[in-house]
Structure formats: structure tokens, C-alpha cells
Amino acid sequence: MLHDPLQLVLPEDHRCADRTHVPLEELRDDDWIGAADPRDPCDRLLSWACAQHSFEPVHTLRTDDYAVVQVFVAAGEGVALIPRLALGPPREDVAVRQLEGAPLAREISVAVLRTTAARSIRELVEALTEQARLIQRRWSDADAGLA
């Protein structure tokens, strides 16, 4: 399983861009860029987190392309949460920050039917598990300033 934290992406000139951690309640009046499907798990997590602060995020744009999300954010059309794994190298004209408090994240895992006994499936699951470990280690090293 991979714990994939959601990163706050702001226009570089956003009033909160100079902070490392941004309180969610300070984004109450911002426009949000979300997934094309409002039932997207990341959007649902954002809605839940905002409800803890007594507001609902207003989505002004929706797309399923995270590169396009960064373009809209850079253009000042809103702010967004992007999973770290999907962020890729961020654009130079956006600020990537953490939300203050407990991190919001998605969990990525693999499921296999118990009746599946093929050796290739076991090997695939092992390879995916190893890649998840490598990604998590790389993120830990980067967060500690080692990478």
C-alpha cells in the first residue's frame, strides 16, 4: 500500500504562497479546481476536510488532467489539491505547499481475488509492493532534505 499525500497547489503570487503549511480555513473564499467527477475520492476528502471548518469548497473548474490543473492554478483560476504521485515536477509558476494539520492522503493498494493463483500475479504484486516502498523511501529522503 502507498500513502499518497495530497499537495496544496497555489498560484505563485497567492497570499499563502510564502508559507510552508497553510490552514485550510484560510482558503475558504478561494475557488477550487477539482476532478471532472465530483465523486472523485480526492474531491470527497477535500469536501470532508472543509466541512470540519464549516465551509464547502467552490469548484469553478473541473478536469481529470493534473497537468491541466497546474496550468489553471498558474493562471490564477483557483487552488487545487493534487496527489503527490500525480504532481510530477511542479511548474515553476505554482507554489506547492502542505495543508496545516493532519495530512490528507489517498491510499493506493492492489487487490487480487483469492482464487487467482497464477505465479505472474504474485510477481506483479511483489513488484508493485517494491515500487511503493521505493517511492515512499524517496519521499521520506526528500522530506528530510536528503534527496
Results as ranks from 00 to 15, higher is better:
residue 143 D to M: 04
residue 113 L to C: 09
residue 106 R to P: 00
residue 70 Q to L: 03
residue 145 G to H: 06
residue 124 L to N: 01
residue 132 A to T: 00
residue 141 D to Q: 12
residue 136 Q to D: 15
residue 38 P to L: 06
residue 68 V to M: 14
residue 12 E to Y: 12
residue 114 R to Q: 10
residue 35 A to P: 04
residue 38 P to W: 08
residue 138 R to E: 15
residue 100 E to Y: 00
residue 32 W to S: 09
residue 29 D to T: 12
residue 42 C to D: 12
residue 58 V to R: 13
residue 38 P to Q: 07
residue 59 H to E: 05
residue 64 D to F: 04
residue 69 V to I: 15
residue 106 R to V: 15
residue 97 R to K: 15
residue 66 Y to L: 03
residue 21 H to C: 06
residue 14 H to Y: 07
residue 46 L to M: 08
residue 65 D to E: 11
residue 59 H to A: 08
residue 85 L to I: 09
residue 107 E to L: 14
residue 37 D to C: 03
residue 111 A to T: 11
residue 113 L to S: 14
residue 98 Q to L: 14
residue 3 H to A: 09
residue 69 V to H: 08
residue 29 D to Q: 10
residue 78 G to S: 13
residue 37 D to I: 06
residue 30 D to L: 01
residue 51 A to R: 14
residue 114 R to E: 13
residue 141 D to T: 01
residue 118 A to Q: 10
residue 6 L to R: 02
residue 34 G to L: 01
residue 111 A to V: 12
residue 114 R to S: 12
residue 30 D to I: 00
residue 113 L to M: 01
residue 57 P to D: 08
residue 44 R to F: 00
residue 122 R to C: 05
residue 16 C to Q: 14
residue 3 H to K: 07
residue 111 A to H: 05
residue 37 D to L: 07
residue 27 L to C: 06
residue 25 E to F: 09
residue 63 T to W: 03
residue 23 P to K: 03
residue 34 G to K: 02
residue 127 A to N: 12
residue 69 V to A: 07
residue 14 H to L: 00
residue 67 A to N: 13
residue 11 P to M: 02
residue 110 V to T: 13
residue 107 E to V: 13
residue 26 E to H: 03
residue 95 A to R: 09
residue 77 E to N: 14
residue 27 L to G: 02
residue 76 G to F: 06
residue 23 P to E: 03
residue 73 V to W: 02
residue 134 L to V: 14
residue 70 Q to Y: 09
residue 49 A to R: 15
residue 13 D to W: 07
residue 5 P to V: 09
residue 40 D to M: 01
residue 76 G to R: 04
residue 28 R to G: 07
residue 89 P to V: 11
residue 139 W to P: 00
residue 128 L to E: 11
